[in-house]
């Protein structure tokens, strides 16, 4: 394991071409897929591939850290935030800035070509391999460097992490500027306002749709947003199934009429309703 050759073996070549393709495809999916959660998952895949490449390059510690920290912690953090912001909210991929997409494509293409040309023209030294450096173990070698040569950078990194933690807390923490209201005060307020004295109505619960994101129907068949929790309301994630319910109702009426033997063919529009009701019933 400690013998990472200077030149890559055939096995490594096979591994590179297969996993490299996977990594590029994952990266492309990251930037092309509409939903943030899909992007995050593709990115996580790419990162795992990269971890394998680290291991292949003799960076065992980094490979493990990549999986644990990046894929395990950071990507999960991303997923958390995606959930918080709204997992189903899909990005529209139409470009709003004039010429932005062309500029981005041009710049990206030019940049990539330049980078690759630069690497091609670079006088790269022979690959020495990490055999000697990893002789005492990769982790031990890294530790030796971190705590000797890079000790100050390491300390400063610690300070950075602390700062980032505090910063994140400061940013997300909402200072309470007034005392929290007690149950009694809230109840009094509701009485004073005169709206919704009883508890808020429950979301729609029907035979086929019972979920918190479905608005309950008022007696006249229109949906009431009050029945959906506030967060979903703000995100605009209320599913509207009212027309389905109405269609079901119509279908029901239609069927009952058929059973009663009424003539339906004399009313062409009723016939169409009937067809639709049939489809809905299926």
């Amino acid at each position: 394991m400690n013998t990472v050759a200077a030149a890559a073996s055939t096995g490594e070549a096979v591994q590179f071409w297969i996993l490299g393709t996977v990594a590029v495809v994952g990266a492309l999916c990251t930037i092309l897929l509409k939903k943030a959660v899909h992007s995050a998952l593709c990115l996580a895949g790419t990162m795992i591939v990269l971890a394998v490449f680290y291991l292949a390059n003799g960076a065992y510690f980094l490979g493990i850290v990549q999986i644990v920290v990046y894929t395990g912690a950071i990507m999960m953090l991303f997923l958390f935030v995606v959930m918080l912001v709204g997992v189903t909210a899909a990005d529209s991929l139409t470009e709003t800035l004039k010429g932005q997409r062309w500029l981005a494509a041009g710049c990206g293409l030019g940049f990539g070509v330049l980078l690759i040309a630069g690497i091609r023209h670079a006088r790269l030294a022979e690959f020495n391999g990490l055999a000697r450096a990893n002789a005492g173990g990769n982790v031990q070698g890294l530790a030796e460097l971190i705590f000797t040569k890079y000790v100050f950078a390491f300390e400063i990194t610690g300070a950075l992490l602390i700062t980032a933690t505090v910063g994140a807390m400061v940013l997300t923490n909402r200072e309470r500027t007034e005392r929290a209201k007690t149950q009694r005060e809230l109840a009094d307020k509701r009485v004073r306002d005169g709206k919704h004295l009883p508890p808020l109505p429950a979301p729609g619960v029907y035979a086929r749709h019972n979920a918190v994101d479905i608005a309950g129907l008022l007696p006249d068949g229109t949906p009431s947003e009050l029945t959906v929790m506030q967060t979903l309301r703000e995100r605009g994630q209320i599913r509207d199934v009212s027309h389905e319910a109405l269609n079901d109702l119509k279908a029901l009426e239609q069927r009952s009429e058929e059973r009663l033997g009424r003539d339906t063919d004399s009313h062409p529009d009723r016939g169409r309703d009937h067809d639709r009701a049939e489809e809905a019933a299926k």
């Binding site: 980094l62 690959f127 890294l142 460097l145 990194t157 992490l161």
Partner: peptide, 21 residues
């Protein structure tokens, strides 16, 4: 890091990860 045969590159990558976190 593999090219040069020492671990400094990995150290920098490590720091990058920390900073990225």
């Amino acid at each position: 890091s593999r090219m040069h045969g020492n671990l400094d590159g990995q150290i920098i990558a490590f720091f990058t990860m920390v900073v990225a976190a």
